[in-house]
Computed example of a mutant assay.
Amino acid sequence: MTYKLSEVGAAGASSPPKRERQSMYRAVVADELGPVGHYTLRHLPRPQLEAGEVRVALVAVGISYVDVLTAEGNYQVKPPVPFIPGSEAAGVVIETAPDVPDVSVGDRVVCGGWYGLLADECVLPRDAVTPIPPGIDLVEAAVFPASFSTAWHALVDRAHVRPGETVLVLGAGGATGYAAVQVAKVLGAHVIASASTHEKRALATGGGADATIDARAADWRDAVKAANGGMPVDVVFDPIGGAATDAAFRSLAWCGRHLIVGFPGGIASLRTNLPLLKGASLVGVNIRQFYLSQPDKAAANMAHLLDLASAGRLRPAVARNYPIEDYALVMAEAAKGESAGRIVVNLNMR
């Protein structure tokens, strides 16, 4: 369970009287999965803490394409309803269960889960929150966990990227793509970033990309090869899918690794003779299953990533902040995927 939701009122129910609001919190909720019109901002009863739990006053919530896909009921796994979107956030601990000794009231933390965080506070198991080291802004921390943990798991745990290898990042101006650019540079790789707009390519350059490619260029494969000195690439980080997957796989070197991270562009039809001819690997990256099956390793990865962020070596890009009242605009913008940088609900905005 990522959150606790009880006694939810019907959609459109009137706000509770002011004198009762101390026992309430606000969240964006739908009784059935579907388009943004199904969702309303409601006051809900604050659940009591159970053993092993903490309560966090949220400062910022990141909303991604996957969050919207899940909210619409179009993700590959369907969550239970009533449903609160939001899978990453940051805030301050305001209450802990007696059996939680290592987190204290006042600690700044990042919060992760599959859903339940598009709210002004949340109750989570202790292992779903991670203390934030100094030097990391809470708004940036809110959009750090999912993207950077995915990029690290893909490039380190799955592809085993080595210094000097070339990593081609598709969708380099998106959330995970931009994180992958930075992680690949930390690993000592030569990074080629492919993105669809000038703004997104500029963002990738700012994140450390050694070269950028227009994702819509007619001579895209030739441009990728030229950006790598006429040589094929070692690793492809692919959060796009569709036609981009085939072209990128054909750009791989012998024993290359192609990381399948997502497929908003559609599910590709890759000819199976290509992996054989190249001795190459098609590698799936399922970050949710990784967290479920290897929680200790996932937690260690996140702790290491936060240390790198604290040292200034990793940093997410925030495009815009919105108040929670503008949740419909936030979800629509995240669904489009056109922003160079992340969209954040900032609970300090009114």
Results as ranks from 00 to 15, higher is better:
residue 158 R to C: 11
residue 31 D to I: 06
residue 188 G to M: 00
residue 327 Y to G: 01
residue 292 L to D: 08
residue 214 D to Q: 04
residue 87 S to D: 10
residue 50 E to V: 12
residue 218 A to N: 09
residue 247 A to K: 13
residue 259 L to M: 13
residue 230 G to K: 12
residue 288 R to C: 03
residue 66 V to M: 11
residue 230 G to C: 10
residue 77 V to M: 07
residue 55 R to I: 03
residue 78 K to Q: 13
residue 299 A to W: 00
residue 293 S to P: 05
residue 311 A to L: 05
residue 316 P to F: 00
residue 168 L to R: 04
residue 330 V to D: 01
residue 244 A to M: 09
residue 90 A to I: 05
residue 245 T to L: 15
residue 340 A to N: 08
residue 182 Q to C: 04
residue 132 I to C: 02
residue 163 P to S: 09
residue 254 W to A: 03
residue 248 A to V: 02
residue 310 S to I: 01
residue 3 Y to R: 11
residue 281 S to M: 08
residue 322 Y to M: 03
residue 214 D to V: 03
residue 134 P to V: 11
residue 88 E to I: 03
residue 109 V to N: 14
residue 135 G to Q: 07
residue 171 G to M: 10
residue 245 T to E: 11
residue 287 I to V: 10
residue 159 A to Y: 07
residue 64 S to T: 12
residue 253 A to G: 14
residue 142 A to M: 07
residue 129 V to Q: 07
residue 90 A to V: 01
residue 84 I to S: 13
residue 270 L to T: 09
residue 97 A to G: 11
residue 272 T to M: 06
residue 253 A to T: 08
residue 272 T to G: 14
residue 305 L to R: 01
residue 138 L to F: 11
residue 204 A to Y: 03
residue 28 V to P: 07
residue 224 V to D: 13
residue 18 K to Q: 15
residue 67 D to S: 02
residue 145 P to F: 13
residue 86 G to T: 06
residue 102 D to L: 01
residue 154 A to N: 12
residue 349 M to H: 06
residue 102 D to A: 08
residue 196 S to I: 02
residue 215 A to Q: 04
residue 268 A to R: 05
residue 40 T to L: 02
residue 168 L to W: 03
residue 37 G to E: 10
residue 100 V to Q: 10
residue 294 Q to P: 14
residue 64 S to N: 13
residue 202 A to Y: 05
residue 209 A to Q: 14
residue 249 F to E: 05
residue 261 V to S: 07
residue 1 M to F: 13
